[in-house]
Design a protein around this nucleic acid. Structure first.
Lengths: 295, 295
DNA sequence: ACAAAAATGATTCACTTGTTGCAAACCTTG
DNA sequence: CAAGGTTTGCAACAAGTGAATCATTTTTGT
């Protein structure tokens, strides 16, 4: 793990030119980089058996403005190391990261990319598989996503509707969206998407479905989301963004993965269903040209 | 990687019993455990959009002596996490580089992450900025996205509608979606989203708008998309996926970036508009709890 | 050996930190 | 709608922070 650490290298390079006390301080910093980030300067000095002022002097000696510059360096390093994904993104787009990091757009896209790769953690993958399994055996799947989450819910429903007629989108004009639940049965499943702030209507409809005995699956943004308590299974999507708004991109990614897992479960049937859909669209002239399907 | 974290679990367990402010603080702590260790309480409170005192109160609520108890917990966790380097790195690289071998889900998520980070290329960024600039000075923005692209178009429109009333979604029951173009003027702009296969209706409506003199901006999937010829400016979104279906996640990411650029262009006005939206939702009891806005 | 220069320690200062007490604002619940 | 308790924001606080200053010691060159 060859983490490039310019400050560390600088300290080593200038070590011989330091006074004894400075060396002692510098040595402690080299050997306990985490401490620098986690502990006050005075405490660090105490541990290094050095005067507090020596740390300040070390910073100046290294050409920094003050001790805080040193600390910030190690804080940043620690952050990077722990978030983990940074390394990967950096690796993938070395040039772009360094060059275009200053624009809002580039920064945001990097963040999104990282958030999605976070979903590769074992816990998330397990939840995805589990939810997909539940969906597989459902008689009907009622899909609910209001307001900002409408996009995710609708997209899931749209794809599912290409594969069969098990999906029911809880959406309708004049507030009739919930009506589709009238004939819901305990064998059915509800997939609900909601992130903060949670729409009251979403929670109410979910509660109703739960009361009816449906299995509740949810895509939401936190362990403490009100949906967690209502749901049998949950998968979490990051929503944080540099902008004013939450991002729904990771949630959409989750939804697409679920669709894929479902289709992949019975490939022949999925291909068959898509074939039929293609014919339908063809006869209706829905699309501008034939629909190429791979393989 | 199920890191056992008793404090985290305690917070989750007691979350429902907390007051709103306490919940907001607790939530931020849950979502940013590293920050707790690395920054001062006041700064943490600032990031969480909470009063400093609330953090102290959170500690007391959890039965701790003071905030420092919480911090020390996360400091210890961070220390541990960094010592177990070898294991961690191994795990990380497994999740990142070698994800290909694993499950379908992991592979797919990995691909999505890569596709989005591809959008950081200078050409894409330039196109994004250019489109954002055009959108900024538009009188009205008509948003069109049919079938699978509905999710992207709608999400863009939804966010824009929070910021003002310039956005018009070309969508309506019984095929009336195009009617909104009746009063479109040459000063207006149309943002159209479409990927292969291209819906005929999308192309027709776009052509109509073009004939009316509107500026056409498009989010589409290829240089050879039929939209390219109809559009004044275009940004390309990758849509390839391992599954049967195209992915719209990168397209949604693009849409979110555009929204952010627009909001960021006039921060004060955006904040103002969001403030007004919050009040509206509050008086309608749309959401389950107050909407926290950072800074 | 003895100035001159460098390094170190002690003291102090301006500032931030985490905490607390209090009053205004906010629900509840009779 | 009014009394009650809870929640929240604000202002003040003592303690601790990093930095600056100056006196003292140590080192160095001749």
């Amino acid at each position: 793990m060859p983490q490039r650490d310019p400050l560390r290298e600088q300290i080593i390079a200038q070590y011989d030119a330091m006074s004894p006390q400075l060396q002692q301080a510098a040595r402690y910093v080299l050997e306990h980089p985490d401490e620098v980030a986690l502990v006050s300067m005075r405490e660090l000095a105490r541990h290094a058996a050095v005067q507090p002022a020596t740390m300040t002097r070390l910073a100046k000696f290294l050409g920094k403005q003050g001790y805080d510059d040193i600390r910030e360096h190690y804080v940043a390093a620690l952050r990077r190391g722990n978030d983990g994904f940074a390394a990967k993104v950096r690796q993938r787009t070395e040039g772009a990261t360094a060059a275009a990091n200053d624009t809002i757009a580039a920064h945001m896209l990097h963040g999104l990319s990282a958030q999605i790769s976070q979903l590769c953690e074992p816990d998330s993958l397990q939840r995805l598989e589990a939810i997909a399994n539940t969906l597989k055996s459902a008689r009907k799947v009622y899909v609910l996503g209001l307001r900002s989450c409408h996009s995710v819910a609708w997209h899931f429903h749209y794809v599912m509707s290409l594969l069969g007629d098990r999906s029911v989108h809880l959406e309708g004009p004049a507030g009739t969206g919930g009506d589709r639940l009238i004939r819901a049965m305990p064998d059915d499943v509800m997939l609900v998407v909601s992130v903060k702030p949670y729409a009251v209507a979403t929670l109410e409809l979910t509660q109703l479905a739960k009361d009816k005995g449906l299995t509740i699956l949810s895509i939401t943004d936190s362990e403490v989301s009100p949906l967690v308590g209502l749901s049998d299974q949950t998968i979490f999507c990051p929503t944080e963004s540099d902008s004013f708004f939450h991002t729904l991109t990771p949630a959409l990614a989750i939804s697409e993965v679920l669709c894929t897992l479902l289709a992949e479960d019975d490939r022949p049937q999925a291909l068959d269903a898509l074939q039929r859909a293609d014919e339908h669209f063809l006869s209706l002239n829905t699309y501008a040209s034939a629909i190429p399907r791979r393989e």
